[in-house]
Design a protein around this nucleic acid. Structure first.
Lengths: 115, 115
DNA sequence: ACCGTACTACGATGCCTATCGTACGAGTCG
DNA sequence: CGACTCGTACGATAGGCATCGTAGTACGGT
């Protein structure tokens, strides 16, 4: 099978109008979460949590994904045992045109610079 | 007299290459600090700390300005008894082109939306 | 039914931070 | 000098948060 059905377990997401700029910035001000978002941006599509190899425990990884979801940066959905993650590009671009691209570009430049 | 001399008291600022994206985002993720930066952006020029009428005490205001300065978002200089504040536009635009404008635009849209 | 994988929940810990109040220093003006 | 304004320093406090470990749940495959 290629793609297990979406589970009935659902996760609370803010609707578009509930997304706050301060929350987004706070979510992205953590190096680990910025790294996650950068990886999600390059891989156009959904990625499972376990795809990420972060230098923290799984508990902490769960925590970071929750912060990203609750701030409105990513959307999460269960698919089988996996939890798939995707950037909320449409919502973010709709609310804050150009912001996400500027942030990703900034993060990319800093990475090149050495960070 | 129109503009008192700059005092010998000087304040530590990060040089351009020391400015970290995470630090900038963290600085701007606080509503009070975002408000300060928005006001600084509209008033092209320097503003004294006392120009701002924030719903917090003066101690707290000092704290927020320090966070903004240490993260590289603003530059501060003493001029007489006043402490003048200015956005580090050149440095930020040099490091992260388009980011500051995107952030200010995003903050503006959210303010219109009701925030 | 059983096992393994993926992720969660909960509690603990230590650090960071937004806030305040009070007391103080630096500068200007009379 | 003295009074006043602007901003700082320091301590306290309360809440937030990044991290961990352990124990547990949900799902898929055998």
């Amino acid at each position: 099978m290629t793609s297990p059905a979406v589970s009935s377990r659902d996760l609370p997401h803010p609707v578009r109008d509930e997304i706050r700029l301060e929350g987004v910035l706070h979510a992205l001000s953590d190096p680990m979460r910025l790294r996650i978002v950068r990886e999600l941006a390059t891989a156009s599509g959904e990625l499972s949590c376990s795809h990420f190899d972060l230098p923290v425990t799984k508990s902490t990884t769960t925590h970071h994904f929750r912060v990203l979801r609750e701030s409105g940066v990513i959307r999460q959905v269960y698919r089988g045992t996996a939890k798939m993650n995707g950037l909320r590009r449409d919502d973010l671009d709709g609310l804050f045109p150009g912001l996400l691209d500027a942030l990703l570009d900034a993060a990319g430049r800093q990475a090149v610079r050495g960070g």
